[in-house]
Each structure stands twice: as C-alpha cells, then as structure tokens.
Design a protein around this nucleic acid. Sequence first.
DNA 1: GGCGTTCTAGAATATTCGTAG
DNA 2: GCTACGAATATTCTAGAACGC
Lengths: 145, 145, 145
Amino acid sequence: PAGINPNYFPAKLWRLVNSPLFRSVRWDDRGEVLLVDQALFESEVLGAGQGPHFFQTKNFSSFIRQLNLYGFHKLVQELAGGEEGSEDEIDVVNDFSGPLLQFHNPNFRRDRPDLLSHLIRLTSGNKAKLAAGQEVTSRPARQIQ
Amino acid sequence: PAGINPNYFPAKLWRLVNSPLFRSVRWDDRGEVLLVDQALFESEVLGAGQGPHFFQTKNFSSFIRQLNLYGFHKLVQELAGGEEGSEDEIDVVNDFSGPLLQFHNPNFRRDRPDLLSHLIRLTSGNKAKLAAGQEVTSRPARQIQ
Amino acid sequence: PAGINPNYFPAKLWRLVNSPLFRSVRWDDRGEVLLVDQALFESEVLGAGQGPHFFQTKNFSSFIRQLNLYGFHKLVQELAGGEEGSEDEIDVVNDFSGPLLQFHNPNFRRDRPDLLSHLIRLTSGNKAKLAAGQEVTSRPARQIQ
DNA sequence: GGCGTTCTAGAATATTCGTAG
DNA sequence: GCTACGAATATTCTAGAACGC
C-alpha cells in the first residue's frame, strides 16, 4: 500500500497475509482477524533457507512481540458452542492443520489498506504522545522520486 | 455476548449453557438456575480428547471453585420432602441421567446476557474494592464486535 | 529430594533433568547449566498424550515464564568465536538435534539437591519480602507421616 | 533516533490444596 | 458432611528494558 514503509513490520505483515504463497498467515472469513498457524509459520516464514526472508529472527515469540508492539491482541478460540456463527468458528479453527492463533487490530483489515498508516509502534514515547492527544505517525518510506 | 472477555470463565460458561452440543450444562425451566450433570460434564467437557477444551483442568472441583469465585451458590436439593410442589423438584433433579446440581447467580440468567458483565471474580482484592464502594470490572475483551 | 513440594515447578524440573526417559532436558558437562532442546521438549513433555504429563500447558513460553519466575537466566550461546575452549561450547550446542537453550540458576546444580529449597517464586510479594530481609520459603509438601 | 530482536517481568485469570465455618 | 473461601502456584497475554543496526 502507498504511504507506508515497506521495510517495516506492518507492511511485511500485510504482504504475508495477502500472499497466496504463504498459507500460515491468513484472514478470517470476514477479513477482520489475522489467523496464524504457528508450526507452519515457523517453517515457511522463519525457517532456514526461505527465499524472501521476511524477518531476521527464528523465534516465533519475536513475531508475537511485534504484533503486540503494533497493537494486535490475541483472541481466544471460541470453539463449537456459540449461539450464532459457530460454524464459522469451527471452520476457522480446524481448517487444514494445527490450531490457528487469532489476532485482532482495528487498523488491520483486509478491505482497508488505508488504515495501515495508523499502525504505530507502541513504545512508551509514542504512548505518551497518544495520551497527550498528539498525532503519531510512522517514519515514512524514503521515496526515490 | 458483547463486552465481556471470551477467554474468561463467565463467557465460557455462557457458551456452554447455551450450546446444544453440551447436555451436561443447562438452564432450568425458568432460565434462572444453572443445572449441571457432574458425570456427563466430566466426560464431555473435562474429558480427554475433547476438541474444544474449555478448561485446562480435569477436576470437577476446580469448576466448582470457579463458580464460587464468580458468585454462584449451590442450591440444596429438597428431595421429595416438601409439602406440595415436590414433583417439580423431582423432575428437575432426575431429568435424564444423573442427579443435577443446581447453582444460582443473580447475574446469570438466560434472558439477560447484559448482566454477564457484572460477574466479577471475588478475590480478596476485588472484595475489598467492592466494600470500599469502588467499581470492579473485569479486564476488557478485545472484541471485534 | 526431601523437603520440597513434589507438585511444584522446581521438583518437576529436577525430576525431568535427572530422568533418562526425557532427553530434551539435561545437564551440561559440569552439572551447573540446564540444557533444553525446545523442539524435543515440546513433543516429549508438552505434547499430547504424554503419560506423566508434567505441565498443564502446551506452550513452551509458559515453561520459560516459570524458569524466569524461579530465577533462572538464559545464557547466550557463544558460537565458535572464542579463543580457546570453544570446542566445549560447540559440543554443548550441537549435541544431538536442535540447538540447546541454556539456563542457569545458582541454586539448581546437579550435585546440590539440598539447594532446591532455595528456589522460590519471584512474585512481587516475595521480592518485597526478600528486599526487607525476610526469609521466603515455598509452601511445604503435606507429609503423610 | 527509530525499528527489530531478545530476555525478563507485570498483572490478571485459572487451578490446586487445605481448612474454616 | 460439605459448602465456601483463602492463599499459593500455574498459565496466559502483554509490556518493559536493553542492545544492535
């Protein structure tokens, strides 16, 4: 998407979730929740010898730290028991391999790439600025032209 | 229900009692009392190999501890000894399999999901806050809505 | 070892590291450093269907949280870059399968089971007591006789 | 100086055990 | 007998802090 730095975590996550080449990171049916298959992610994204190595780490926990730093929150898997929409949840969880971790961020939605610029790193400094009502933006990409 | 954390006990209990897939946890006729078949609960909810494992314990007593922590109280079953109206009680108790335990909480009613947010964990700290007249709320959910 | 509660983390870790049945948790050559093969640990200790299931979690991160709570610290692996003695480190790291994580605690040594009783949970309350110079002990095991 | 990675800790709920009432 | 509760540990999710680039 335009306007955000392609080298930073939000842009990388966006490319991952929208890439058909990576099955470990996907959208839920509504395009509002990030689904992650940890085992598959570790092999196809963090594993050795992966061509376009997205991240420098091999530890899944570092990926989780990034998600939290950018304001994502984990959703617990509501399995088989709700009133409405329980079928979807079953599908979501048992899709193809291991259980899927679910993360949510109001500024990370499939149909709203324009919101990506609102994903900021929640450092203590940035949080103080936000509390003071100031705008916080990520460092923009260095455009050639 | 909206506004409560789906990871926590009240939400899980709500899903259980309203799920047609679990027969061990049900409402009484009026939708005001929680009915629990211990033997069935131990096999279908706490038993091994249950896909959607709601709890990490296999001990029924831990489930009871949670009920008490959230303000549920056990109703003693007056077995066929009252004056009139004893048939109802017999029906309630011997519905389909084992004896049904009955628990009550004024904020847990079938037709009032809005009251679920009042179910708070009665730790000593929270009870002190309540005694001091302060509001006590659960850690909020990260709801999608 | 006598005197410590066999249900708590230090005793479980002691049994694991000294058990020939579990290869994922071992001592280093000197018996002073805990070596953990994460992948093997996840399958043989945290995996489903393990007989004497030590922990109720399936997440390796929860195991790490326990190590830190009881005062263990991770040792960074100096990979083949030192001056002398680097062979030992290589052996430690590449012994049989994946890389081995190393953790250290002065009260966790192979030849000193008597020190296990000094492993206490570093909660905020216990840390305050320690800072005040008070003794902190774990809840003792309930002995039958 | 910002971002990514790592290691550790905070804080809330969950689970267990024992016992008061 | 047995319900309810206190208190400790266990588990989970998130955040703090340090460091390198």
